[in-house]
């Protein structure tokens, strides 16, 4: 082999390595700036939560619900009595002042979740980062968690399902609810489908333990209420704009 050919071969090798490195580097760098790397263990350093500004939540808008349904493969089957609803739009009217507000209600991801307390097999569990989930492998479908949930945030799957999405395992005879888009969080994304879909920015997702996060900043500025605060469940979802 001539000397020129050897140089050319070395040059091409070095160029390919540099090109490959440049292609991979942004991905690696992106991982480091995101909330959590895909292979990074879940820790209690974060507590994920949502802040909902009811003043910005428009009546009749169902964008967050539609986004959730699409993200997790939920669809209408046998009607609202038995169909799963991970997120629902609630309209509230103050009994004295007549003040009307709208808000999405989903699993409140309590720090002291009653569903986890009552689950006989431990299928209902809370991750270190505060996300409350159901382990579909050991859920026996007793529905005791649904009896215990103060927010009616869980649904039971009443029929056979097909075409489930890989990141949202669901099955007949088990209980499910909002996962706070855990598949996104575990991919390192810093948002949920509902938050992303809200046209008015009424929903803010973030780390409640990080004082620099947008959600913590907003809470520090205007505070936020827990639904059924009397129960002292320390919910991860907070609401602004509720009177009284």
């Amino acid at each position: 082999m001539s000397q020129i050919n050897q140089y050319r071969r070395k040059f091409l090798g070095a160029a390919s390595a540099a090109f490959t490195g440049l292609s991979i580097a942004p991905g690696i760098l992106l991982q480091t700036v995101h909330a959590k790397a895909n292979d990074e263990a879940v820790t209690s350093k974060q507590r994920w939560g949502l802040l909902i500004d009811t003043n910005l939540c428009e009546p009749g808008c169902t964008d967050c619900i539609d986004a959730c349904n699409q993200e997790n493969g939920l669809r209408d089957i046998h009607g609202p009595e038995t169909d799963a609803q991970w997120i629902r739009k609630v309209t509230l009217k103050h009994q004295k002042t007549g003040h009307v507000l709208n808000m999405p209600v989903m699993c409140q991801h309590c720090a002291e979740p009653p569903c986890v307390d009552v689950c006989p097999t431990g299928a209902s569990f809370k991750r270190a980062d505060g996300i409350v989930l159901v382990d579909k492998h050991i859920c026996i479908g007793c529905r005791y968690c649904m009896m215990a949930c103060p927010y009616k945030a869980r649904s039971f799957i009443h029929e056979k399902l097909t075409d489930q999405l890989p990141h949202a395992p669901r099955g007949k005879g088990t209980v499910e609810g909002c996962t706070l888009c855990v598949h996104r969080i575990d991919r390192g994304e810093n948002t949920t489908a509902c938050t992303q879909a809200c046209p008015n920015g009424a929903m803010t997702f973030g780390d409640l333990k990080n004082p620099e996060s947008e959600i913590s900043q907003k809470l520090a500025q205007h505070s936020g209420k827990e639904l059924r605060a009397k129960l002292k469940l320390d919910t991860g979802v907070r609401y602004q704009g509720i009177q009284g």
Binding site: P80, E81, R88, K89, V90, T91, Q95, I242
Partner: peptide
């Protein structure tokens, strides 16, 4: 759901 408020929803609140 919220004290002092009447609730309505698609989920029979």
């Amino acid at each position: 759901l919220v004290e002092g408020y009447e609730a309505t929803s698609s989920f029979f609140d």
